[in-house]
Design a protein around this nucleic acid. Structure first.
Length: 475
DNA sequence: TGTAAGTGA
DNA sequence: TGACGTCACTTACAG
């Protein structure tokens, strides 16, 4: 485990100095009188001889971009000590508990393996997509689609439609789920446990183009949530003795941000009245009363709500809902009839982006519209990326702002409370298991998260508590 | 090293 | 026409 801030910070040494943020981090390090071994990279990429020179160049750029500079100094720089503290603290993993889970998984895997190999009748590697595809298509005569490289597609959505017909496919899906969980999470996590019994992930500020954090070695932002073995794995992350986990999760944050950005009155109203936003959307697009929305209608509305955030097309929606393309198109049309300002917002936003060459988040984080010089058109793929950016990116902005405040005002120098994880919209703390402490933190942290930035809609936070990460209950 | 697959938000 | 929902990370196979 790293013993101090600068040792920890040195992990940037292994990253290319590719972005303006990296460069300013380099400048920041220099200002502290610390050397940065990525000098060679700066030289290579920017043609400068020293990091002083590089820093001067970047600062000059920033002086012309006050909003971006304010974003950088008020969010990216103050995040550094927060991440340092999170990485240094780590999270406890109960290794014997996880090994027990692994044993249970092995039993299930062996059973599946034997029955599947019996069905196949010849030597086969069940993990090889090529071998499995050939077997399914040519022996069992399953009408599989081809991938772009001409091989049989054996992914879940492709083969699960034949699961009823072929028990072998059911076994295969189970086998894949188990072996995936086993190899990705069990061995890796056990190996990642440090001498202090805890896992110290690494957060990177400059990996995700939207400004989100990324986590690696191991990635603690994609620990399984599914019932069964997934949840059992997650349950092996436990609060230390005398401590308890508290998690704070922004509720529907991306849709709230969409409501704010688009100023769409109908959507804003739904949030203000504390309605279930998917039910509210369903009521509108199906022209039924809020109380009369069926489960089916809500499910469709939920898919559309999330799809819109990603710029989904009628084809994508039809695939997702297993309905004809024209039916999907009708849903999308009704959505935009219900929320006309969302469409207007996207159009205006894209027009402006094309004109200025960049788009930005609520707090002023930029993204270039055309990454390569000479490109001047927005194709569908670029359109989706751009549409998603202000929503995902602004959510990341607000989370950073909240986390910085929380760290400075609640966590720092507080032996009763440590921030362990940040999973995009979710914060996990380890706190002293004492009613007064919990009550106090719950109120303070929630308030800071909700009041981080005044949106056109109220911000809501779900709070959960538990002795392990897999079994958290709402409070 | 690239592709396919599958976890999470 | 062709492609067809964003952002990540990791594993495994196959070349």
């Amino acid at each position: 485990m790293q013993s101090n801030f600068w040792d920890w910070k040195a992990h940037y040494d292994h990253q290319p100095v590719e972005t303006v943020f990296d460069c300013l981090i380099a400048e920041f390090l220099l200002s502290q009188g610390k050397s940065v071994p990525s000098q060679e990279l700066a030289q290579h990429l920017y043609g400068v001889q020293t990091l002083d020179e590089l820093a001067a160049k970047q600062l000059a750029k920033f002086q012309q971009l006050p909003t971006l500079y304010a974003y950088f100094t008020s969010l990216e720089l103050p995040m550094i000590p927060v991440l340092w503290q999170m990485e240094q603290t780590g999270i406890f993993l109960d290794v014997p508990c996880l090994q027990q889970v692994a044993t249970e998984m092995d039993v299930a895997v062996t059973e599946l393996e034997q029955s599947m190999k019996k069905t196949v009748g010849f030597e086969i590697n069940l993990k090889s997509t090529v071998q499995i595809g050939t077997f399914l298509a040519e022996k069992l005569m399953v009408p599989l689609q081809k991938t772009k490289t001409g091989k049989y597609a054996t992914n879940e959505t492709e083969i699960s439609q034949y699961a009823e017909q072929f028990p072998f496919i059911q076994s295969l899906l189970q086998y894949r789920e188990l072996t995936k969980l086993r190899s990705t999470y069990v061995e890796t996590l056990i190996e990642a446990v440090a001498e202090d019994g805890r896992i110290h992930t690494r957060y990177t500020q400059v990996a995700a183009q939207t400004g989100r954090l990324s986590s690696s070695a191991p990635n603690l932002q994609n620990i399984p949530v599914s019932a069964g073995f997934g949840q059992k794995i997650k349950s092996c992350f436990k609060a230390a003795k005398g401590k308890v986990f508290l998690s704070f999760d922004y509720s529907q944050q991306e849709l709230r941000i969409l409501a704010h950005l688009s100023k769409e009155a109908a959507l804003i109203k739904a949030f203000q009245e504390k309605k279930d936003v998917h039910t509210a959307t369903a009521a509108q697009i199906f022209s039924v009363k809020y109380e009369d929305v069926t489960k089916e209608q809500r499910m469709i509305a939920k898919t559309i709500n999330f799809g819109v955030v990603y710029g989904m097309s009628s084809f994508g929606l039809s695939a997702q809902l297993h309905i004809p393309v024209d039916a999907a198109q009708q849903f999308i049309t009704s959505f935009y009839t219900t929320y006309p300002n969302i469409r207007k917002y996207f159009e205006q936003y894209l027009t402006e982006g094309k004109m200025t060459g960049f788009v930005e988040t609520i707090l002023g984080r930029r993204r270039a519209v055309f990454e390569q010089a000479g490109h001047t058109t927005i194709d569908n793929s670029l359109r989706r990326v751009l549409i998603n950016y202000p929503i995902q990116g602004s959510a990341a902005d607000l989370m950073k702002k909240a986390v910085i405040t929380i760290h400075q005002q609640v966590v720092e120098n507080n032996p009763d409370c440590a921030l362990l994880l940040q999973i995009h919209d979710d914060l996990v703390f380890e706190v002293t298991d004492n009613a007064q402490v919990i009550e106090d933190l719950t109120v303070k942290v929630k308030k800071m998260m909700c009041e981080v930035y005044p949106l056109a809609v109220p911000i809501e936070v779900d709070i959960k508590i538990g002795k392990n990460w897999g079994e958290m209950t709402r409070i």
